[in-house]
């Protein structure tokens, strides 16, 4: 209980600690201690800005998801480069509306970011009730197939990781 009060946001704390060490580009003991002090106090002082608790259910799924996204980004870049450098008259831009099953705010923002970073799609807007995501595609041949792909590849693992707790 005591530990929870001292460290209300363990993930934020680790991120801050790593950021401090990376900024100084060193692993000197002094920086480790100073980083730890900052990483303890900053989440504590700003805890009013972080009302919702984040809990990761399956860290392994998250890492697998990150790997899939990095790979897709690499492929996406080559696809988009080919589309851009080729003839632009044949491109078929299209808006798609994705019905979201995922409810956690962190999950939705991660999904939107992933969609923007992967093949030929950019997330444009989220409806006020957080149920629909508007996506713009650079070259969409089959809208339904794209929606299914996004749902299966990105939304499902994110839903498994960010379930409410």
């Amino acid at each position: 209980m005591m530990l929870k009060k001292l460290f209300p946001h363990p993930i934020l704390m680790l991120v801050l600690w790593a950021t401090w060490l990376l900024l100084h580009n060193s692993l000197a003991p002094g920086h480790i201690v100073l980083g730890f002090i900052l990483a303890t106090f900053i989440p504590w002082l700003t805890s009013g800005f972080w009302p919702e608790k984040i809990c990761l259910q399956k860290p392994l799924t998250l890492f697998k998801f990150l790997g899939v996204v990095l790979w897709d980004m690499l492929v996406a870049n080559f696809t988009v480069a080919k589309l851009i450098l080729g003839k632009n008259e044949h491109l078929q831009p299209s808006f798609i509306c994705i019905e979201l099953d995922i409810t956690s705010p962190v999950g939705i923002s991660l999904l939107a970011n992933t969609i923007s970073l992967t093949p030929g799609t950019v997330s444009c807007d989220l409806s006020a009730d957080h149920r629909q995501l508007l996506v713009h595609g650079l070259h969409i041949k089959d809208a339904q197939a794209t929606i299914n792909e996004i749902k299966k590849r990105y939304e499902k693992p994110l839903m498994e990781v960010f379930t409410s707790c």
Binding site: P93, F95, I96, C97, S116, V122, S123, C124, D125, I140
Partner: peptide
Amino acid sequence: PVSAHLMAKAALHIKLKQIERTQNVSETER
């Protein structure tokens, strides 16, 4: 991606015209 999302949102807000062959433009009205 965050800045791309915000710029797209701003463009939708000021009702920027899309190129004519864009499909499903009606979706944006909601």
